[in-house]
Write a protein that binds this DNA or RNA. Structure first.
Lengths: 242, 242
DNA sequence: CGGGCAATTGAACAATGTCAAATTTTGTGG
DNA sequence: CCACAAAATTTGACATTGTTCAATTGCCCG
């Protein structure tokens, strides 16, 4: 039995904006089904159009692009609450692939229905634009990171970001937060070689800034990590959940 | 006397989608004024909210972000037809700065009126989302470039992109297309040092792939440049002009 | 117990960054 | 139009970060 939007376990998390009853009802009607995908599955293919859009209900994944010669760039990591397929929805095709890293549960929407959001729900359309702007913001930060930070700062920045996002999504447990990706994925996200990524992670571990092993990330002192990342720590504002 | 939207010199360029009469009329009403800014002026400040949004009518500029220690990342270059300030419009503050590289002419809109677009003009709201998705797409490409391409490919990629955009905007002249930025700006955009950028540009010149001097860029053989950039050359689809 | 992927480590090497100085171009005032 | 100052480009020598190669170890799962 699919999760009812009224009972959405994500919307009550502090990182998401509240939604009024009318909006919840609209989302419920807009949601066409709920699907499970296994770890390793590709949900959306770079260059392809998709008849569906998704919101992540459970699980983690990653977005990536490739060069003709096969080099891969991880563009972002996917968490519960993320909206997938907007590019395909508005531009006609995806500009990156999305794959599941863990098993995932997704709320599925029909692309054909997207225009109804703009026609009938201006506030929700605004939120969609907000989400696109948020992604743009993130990619700008990532670009700044690859362009101007050294390897240690890059890793610190990435781990801090993953940490904060996981915590804000309510994923923190006794062993820290789940980080199901491989060192290769982090390396491909940060434009570093696997070997250098490994050695730099060891350094962060020795510094006591971040311990990532066994699929879990522990950050004993986020402020220390933020310092290494050359980040000022500001509380992030809640964003819409679609 | 400000340019009337009906006579907009940009909309007839091939890179922009056509607009129907009703939309032109709406844009005309939405446009609150036309402003001139001098080269070097900052239009929008990172971290600040802005009461205005802009469309570039004439001139070039750049978007950039900074690290606390002062390192600068150029996030994109600005051309006629670009929409500025959307982040501030939807998220409340700019996540990067925008400055004029040459003198510019801008169509100015009131941020307070933005909600009217979503309420009254769903098709235009859709276009706004499209623009945000386009920017997201570009930043993903840039991230791929910084993460996976070497210096030569990065420069080739950047020059090819600037070339194509300038040509599609109708800026090609006998000396090539205007490229009013400094080597420092390119270096800051690509995460390379100024010196290395300079030497790599010299290499591209010797290879006959791109000649940039005196503020103009000439590309005798775009296919050659695309090859160096590891890019497959596809025709880009027209995008909305706001 | 064995196979395979992921993580780890060391050593040699290459790409790119830094420093410093010369040269060219650009802008400005007279 | 010229002279001068400031900014941008160019070049060479050298330092460093990060990459590549190669081998080893650890771990999960059948």
């Amino acid at each position: 039995m699919p999760t009812a939007c009224a009972d959405c376990p994500l919307r009550c998390q502090p990182m998401f904006q509240p939604m009024n009853a009318g909006e919840v009802a609209f989302m419920q009607a807009f949601k066409s089904s709920e699907v499970e995908v296994a770890a390793g599955q590709v949900l959306l293919w770079e260059g392809q159009s998709s008849p569906w859009l998704y919101t992540v209900l459970r699980g983690q994944g990653l977005r990536s692009k490739s060069l003709p010669d096969g080099e891969r760039q991880v563009v972002n990591f996917v968490f519960p609450g993320d909206f997938l397929g907007l590019q395909s929805g508005v531009m006609g095709e995806m500009k990156h692939s999305v794959e599941a890293t863990t098993d995932m549960t997704l709320c599925r929407f029909e692309r054909n229905e997207l225009w109804r959001v703009f026609r009938d729900q201006p506030a929700r359309a605004f939120d969609l634009t907000y989400l696109a702007a948020t992604e743009e913001h993130f990619l700008g930060e990532a670009l700044l990171t690859l362009g101007q930070r050294d390897a240690t700062s890059r890793l610190a920045w990435a781990l801090l970001r993953l940490w904060r996002r996981a915590v804000a999504t309510g994923m923190q447990g006794p062993r820290g937060v789940p980080l199901p990706w491989r060192q290769r994925d982090l390396a491909d996200a940060l434009g570093l070689s696997l070997v250098h990524t490994n050695k730099t992670l060891a350094r962060l571990r020795i510094l006591g800034a971040a311990h990532w092993s066994g699929g879990y990330l522990a950050v004993p002192d986020p402020a220390r990590l933020a310092e290494l990342a050359q980040e000022e720590d500001g509380a992030s504002t809640p964003r819409p959940l679609f």
